[in-house]
Simulated assay, not measured.
Amino acid sequence: MDFSYYLQTLDHFLIYLAVSLVLFIMGTYIFKWITPYSERDQIRSGNSAVALKLLGKMAGLVVVLQSAVLHAINLVDLVIWAFIAIIVQIVLHIVIEYVFTRNTNLAKEVENGNVAVGLFLGGVSVLVGLIVAANISF
């Protein structure tokens, strides 16, 4: 087995890994920034609903980043698709939370510990991530 190929491509792996991790952190921060309550404080106090919702957002983001890495032709392409995916996920989250459930404040329900709502919103984030990831395959 010739390890020289792996050594020659190690720099690409490390660069894409670093960029992907930065995009993941940025995306997670953006999701946390648009949340009307402190997810960190809620999770520290044992709010499982908030933890499930945040985990779903993060998983949806990872699915999209995975697809972007697999299909990107270069780092710029990766970054562009990652930002498009983050924006789409935010917009769809807002549409679901505020349009389809006008009579229920889902953010307040999650903040109050409604695990069913947290799981639903986290699951929707994963599903949206899967749809967006599939479309990145152009």
Rank of each mutant, 00 (worst) to 15 (best):
A116W: 14
V19A: 05
K57L: 11
E111K: 08
A82Q: 02
I43C: 10
F120P: 04
G129W: 01
Y6V: 12
L130K: 10
L23R: 04
L21Y: 11
L61F: 09
T104E: 01
I15E: 06
D11G: 10
E97H: 10
Q42L: 14
V69M: 14
N114D: 11
A134H: 02
V132N: 00
L61T: 10
D11V: 14
K57Q: 08
Y29R: 11
V110Y: 10
G46M: 05
L21P: 10
Y98M: 07
V63H: 02
H12L: 15
K53Q: 15
T101E: 00
K57N: 12
V115P: 06
V115N: 09
K53F: 13
N47R: 03
M1D: 05
S45C: 09
F3W: 07
A134N: 08
F100P: 01
Q89T: 01
Y6R: 12
G56S: 07
L75H: 13
D41T: 05
Q89Y: 02
D11Q: 12
T101K: 02
K108H: 02
I43L: 06
N74C: 12
G129R: 05
L65W: 06
D2Q: 08
I25S: 15
L75M: 08
V69W: 11
D11M: 13
V64K: 01
Q89E: 01
R102N: 00
D41S: 08
L70A: 13
N105G: 06
L10K: 03
H71L: 13
L127N: 03
A82K: 07
G113M: 05
A85D: 06
N114I: 15
T101M: 09
L23I: 01
I73E: 15
K57D: 07
W33L: 15
V91G: 01
F100G: 05
L55W: 06
L23V: 05
M58C: 12
L127V: 14
V79T: 13
I136A: 00
L119C: 05
S4H: 09
L14H: 03
S20F: 10
L92Q: 09
L14D: 04
M58E: 10
T104P: 00
A59Y: 14
V117I: 13
E39S: 08
E111H: 11
V88K: 04
T28F: 15
I15P: 03
V76T: 14
V63F: 08
L54G: 01
N47C: 10
V99T: 05
F3C: 01
A107E: 05
N112C: 02
S125D: 11
V50A: 13
V117P: 09
I43M: 12
L119M: 06
V117E: 12
P36F: 10
V126M: 12
I43E: 04
D11C: 11
A51M: 14
A72I: 09
G46D: 03
D41Q: 09
Y29Q: 11
A18P: 14
L65D: 00
